[in-house]
Design a protein around this nucleic acid. Structure first.
Lengths: 194, 194
DNA sequence: AAAAAAAGAATGAACGTTCATTTTTACTTA
DNA sequence: TAAGTAAAAATGAACGTTCATTCTTTTTTT
């Protein structure tokens, strides 16, 4: 067990170093040697945990995506009303993007780049199902517009990435009232008009 | 003039090759040699037009961003009503993202990445002023919510990038009615409620 | 014929990955 | 428990390759 524990620590350190370096320098400017140095590990050691650089970045992506969705749906209760459920999930996601903004930033970068391979992307998307189910119910009840899940995600969730990036970049400062405003915009964009 | 013409052609070919290769392989996997080959030029020739790789990608970004905003505001008339003006600009942007999706894809990739340096990013953002002015007017007239321009952009415009990327990736097919739905979601998110 | 533009080949640095070796761990036996 | 040992984990140095960039020469333009 001591051995296994140690291994997990190293793997985590490598994943964390990958996130930080890719965030700050981009994938193109983060060599394995730097990742190793930041994780306080020999370059050769990386290859005990990951097949190659592509595998390292794929696994990092999947890890962070899982962390993201776990956070989003923690304590979410499917018996909530559609509106309450949406507000709950939305605010959890907003919370994640602000508190774990390093990780959220990494995801945003991956999502617009051919950095991640298709299978890993598919793997990452799987855990959003509860949100899709909620929307499904909302459409049936006439509370949410009958739109494709992609459009709903584009308007209800994705704008948070843009805001988070600009906050991280320092071009925009997000405070409590901004979050409330953003939530209102998100809900207005997908809710059925009376 | 013949000389200058020839030069511009080569520069354009280099910019276009950069866009295609970065789109398909990512910045980290597009060597200068490939860019040169695709532009049918010697690698050394690139350095007659650009200082280095960073400069090439910066200038490509600025070029495409200018093309984007020129397209968005072509024939836009500031005397339109706020709602009509917004619809006009929004649909021009949607048009651009669908018709020039290679170029839009490139911008989306740049926008979430430390690939572009800060000065070039600032340069690229400048030409959005007419839209900001329109929003300003809309807020004054009580037609558009009194939100930060970042939030307005996040909800009114940015979702198109997400939809475009997924369309390009083949996970989502955008047709005429989807565009109309997306427009409605965009407008609902930023318009004042009666 | 001089100047400008372009080319291909060359260069040194940096990269991802592997190799040979050492260190640590886990287990056996006394 | 202590010594011995085999396996696993980790390492730093090395490898071959690829990259961005430059150098020298050739071609094109004026």
């Amino acid at each position: 067990m001591a051995k296994l524990q140690k291994s997990i620590d190293k793997r985590n350190a490598l994943v964390q170093a990958t996130i930080e370096l890719v965030n700050n320098n981009g994938f193109h400017a983060t060599p394995m040697s730097k990742i190793a140095k930041m994780a306080k590990v020999s370059p050769a050691t990386i290859y005990l945990y990951f097949e190659n650089k592509q595998d390292l970045v794929n696994q990092t992506y999947i890890d962070v995506k899982a962390e993201y969705t776990n956070y989003a749906f923690e304590n979410y209760d499917e018996s909530m009303s559609v509106e309450a459920g949406f507000e709950y999930i939305w605010k959890r996601i907003a919370d994640f993007k602000l508190k774990e903004c390093e990780h959220a930033m990494f995801l945003a970068q991956c999502d617009n780049t051919p950095m991640i391979d298709e299978p890993s992307r598919m793997e990452g998307i799987k855990h959003l199902q509860p949100l899709v189910d909620l929307w499904q119910r909302g459409k049936k009840e006439g509370i949410i517009k009958p739109l494709s899940d992609f459009i709903l995600y584009a308007y209800a969730i994705n704008p948070l990435s843009f805001l988070m990036i600009n906050q991280k970049r320092g071009t925009f400062k997000m405070d409590e009232s901004h979050i409330e405003e953003a939530y209102q915009a998100a809900w207005d964009s997908i809710k059925m008009n009376a």
